[in-house]
């Protein structure tokens, strides 16, 4: 069942630029979708339509069968949890715990229920040691995981991550990847928006490629990432594992580094 439906959506910015052109997209419950594209491709504009921050200039966006034009951002955000690219745009509380409680209180959870949920997410995301820390003093990776935890606390049906790896070092990227995998394993609908294909590739997620406001490819990641020309046109670079597989003349690309090293060791 499609829970997110974009039907011929176009969006014109106040400056007159068409940020989205005739985008049609449908996402099912439990699906993991990677939306990729270069800078200015329209990825962030597209995801802002998911929780009604932007409404289409033409066409329609339906979330759980209801048009976003008929719902408030708060109503939609309860179903669609959006984690923005810049953690510093979200964090303002004195402690990490208060940061998590902020969304829960906005959505009307009782103090008792909010405290219970906060306990759960701190433990689920391995952030227990940071509860009383000031969010602004956390590392980039910790801030990002706190932002994800703060959104997951109200348990939205869909989690949307906008450029989760920007400004993250390798260990932080790995931890964010593990967090995403954890949510995928829990059958959450996850949408990851990124131009970091090295991060996206091992997710093995349905891939939507955007270029100049349009969806130029949608489907199997093996097929899409094998098309170097398509990626290059969209301002992207083929993941190294895919390029390496090509170099060795393999039909199927290496799934991850372990897969590649195992194959090379046995060769």
């Amino acid at each position: 069942m499609a829970i997110i439906e974009f039907d011929n959506v176009s969006f014109r910015q106040p400056s007159g630029v068409m940020a989205l052109k005739d985008v049609s997209l449908s996402i099912e419950k439990g699906e993991v979708v990677a939306i990729v594209g270069g800078n200015g491709a329209g990825k962030t504009t597209l995801l802002k339509h998911l929780n009604g921050l932007l409404k289409p200039s033409s066409g329609s966006v339906k979330i759980f069968g209801r048009d976003t034009r008929d719902q408030s951002v708060a109503e939609l955000s309860k179903k669609i949890g959006l984690v923005f690219q810049n953690s510093d745009h979200q964090l303002f509380s004195e402690t990490a715990e208060a940061e998590v409680l902020f969304g829960l209180r906005n959505f009307g959870f009782s103090e008792e229920e909010a405290a219970k949920r906060a306990n759960e997410v701190f433990s689920y995301f391995g952030l227990d040691g940071l509860r009383q820390r000031a969010p602004l003093t956390l590392s980039g990776g910790e801030k990002k995981r706190l932002c994800i935890a703060a959104v997951m606390a109200w348990n939205p049906e869909v989690l949307v991550l906008d450029e989760p790896t920007v400004g993250q070092d390798f260990p932080s990227k790995n931890r964010i990847f593990a967090t995403v995998k954890q949510l995928v394993a829990a059958r959450k609908t996850v949408i990851v928006v990124s131009h970091d294909l090295e991060f996206i590739w091992p997710l093995n997620a349905r891939t939507v490629v955007m270029n100049r406001g349009q969806v130029v490819a949608d489907g199997d990641p093996q097929r899409i990432f094998a098309d170097g020309r398509l990626l290059e046109d969209a301002g992207l670079r083929q993941p190294q594992l895919v390029a390496l597989s090509k170099l060795f003349g393999r039909d199927a690309s290496f799934k991850d580094v372990n897969d590649a090293s195992e194959w090379l060791a046995n060769r």
């Binding site: 921050l53 408030s72 955000s77 923005f84 745009h89 906005n106 959505f107 959104v151």
Partner: peptide, 16 residues
């Protein structure tokens, strides 16, 4: 621009 992005981020966390 920062202001717009911050408002968007906080509205997405249920702030009205």
């Amino acid at each position: 621009l920062d202001l717009t992005q911050i408002i968007d981020a906080q509205k997405s966390r249920g702030l009205e």
